[in-house]
Computed example of a mutant assay.
Amino acid sequence: MQNIGRYEIIEQIGAGAMGRVYRARDPLMGRDVAIKTILAQAIEGPDAQEFRDRFFREAKAAGRLVHPGIVTVHDVSEFEGTPFLVMEYVAGRTLHAVLSGGERLDIDRICDIGVQLAEALNYAHQNSVVHRDIKPANILVAGDQRVKIADFGIAKLLESQVTATGHLLGTPLYMAPEQFTGAQIDGRADLFALGVVLYWMATGDKPFTGDSILSIQYKVVNT
């Protein structure tokens, strides 16, 4: 069995452009955890050390958030040159998987999810933490029907790493106008994204679509 530090890898449960996510066992604490690793190619270049420093700083800030609607950060470290984040393991599906599978939610469930997410965001914003990438793929639906927001801290950091190459900050379909225009971003950007998520849950469609980022940007900024 492969290990990352003291953590025993059980299976890979996710992958993206910037890293991979594993389910693992923490033998010291006797619990399953989720580990997100950052791919080497994502942190190469002259800013690699700055990225590592910010990764640890953002992860520590996220680790101070303790709320039932936020995935808890347990640990942050580096293994064989690869930074990794250890988080609470949530058995369930992402909200994106639920909605993409064609499942329609009734109005009571939509309101319940909306309240849970709003309470979690309010707590984070009161603690001066803005997510900046609220979307169904970053919302986990647990077996007990609780929802939890994932990737606080590192979502912001990974976006910043991509932005350094000239790309936009955030996921276009859920971005607030100020994220397109480069204005100062605060918690209201998260609330805008939450509104987009609620719209998709209620209607089965996304409010702003287009065949390019520019067409989506035009609709968001000018609507």
Rank of each mutant, 00 (worst) to 15 (best):
Q116L: 07
L121N: 05
S128I: 13
R64T: 13
F51M: 13
N138W: 02
T82N: 01
Q116F: 04
R64W: 03
I154Y: 05
Y89D: 03
F51S: 04
M29L: 15
Q49R: 14
T94C: 01
V147D: 02
E78D: 05
A118Q: 11
G30N: 12
V90M: 06
V66D: 14
S100N: 13
A137N: 07
P68A: 00
A155E: 01
L117N: 00
A62L: 09
I113F: 03
D75L: 06
T37I: 06
G45C: 06
I134D: 07
T94H: 01
D112W: 04
H74D: 06
H67L: 10
D144S: 03
G153I: 04
V33S: 00
A124V: 05
G81C: 05
K148Y: 04
I113T: 06
G102V: 02
Q49V: 13
T37L: 09
K36H: 07
L105M: 07
E119F: 08
R57A: 14
G92L: 10
A142C: 02
E80T: 11
Q126S: 15
N138Q: 12
D75F: 01
I110M: 08
L157F: 12
A48W: 03
G81H: 08
G30M: 03
V98M: 03
L121A: 01
L117R: 00
H67C: 06
L121M: 07
Q145I: 12
D106A: 06
V90F: 02
L140N: 09
K60L: 12
H125I: 03
V33T: 01
R54L: 11
Q145L: 14
R52H: 01
E88P: 09
A61G: 00
L157W: 05
R146E: 04
N122V: 12
E80I: 00
D75I: 10
G63F: 08
E159R: 12
R57W: 07
D108L: 14
L95V: 11
E44L: 14
E119H: 03
V86C: 03
G81P: 11
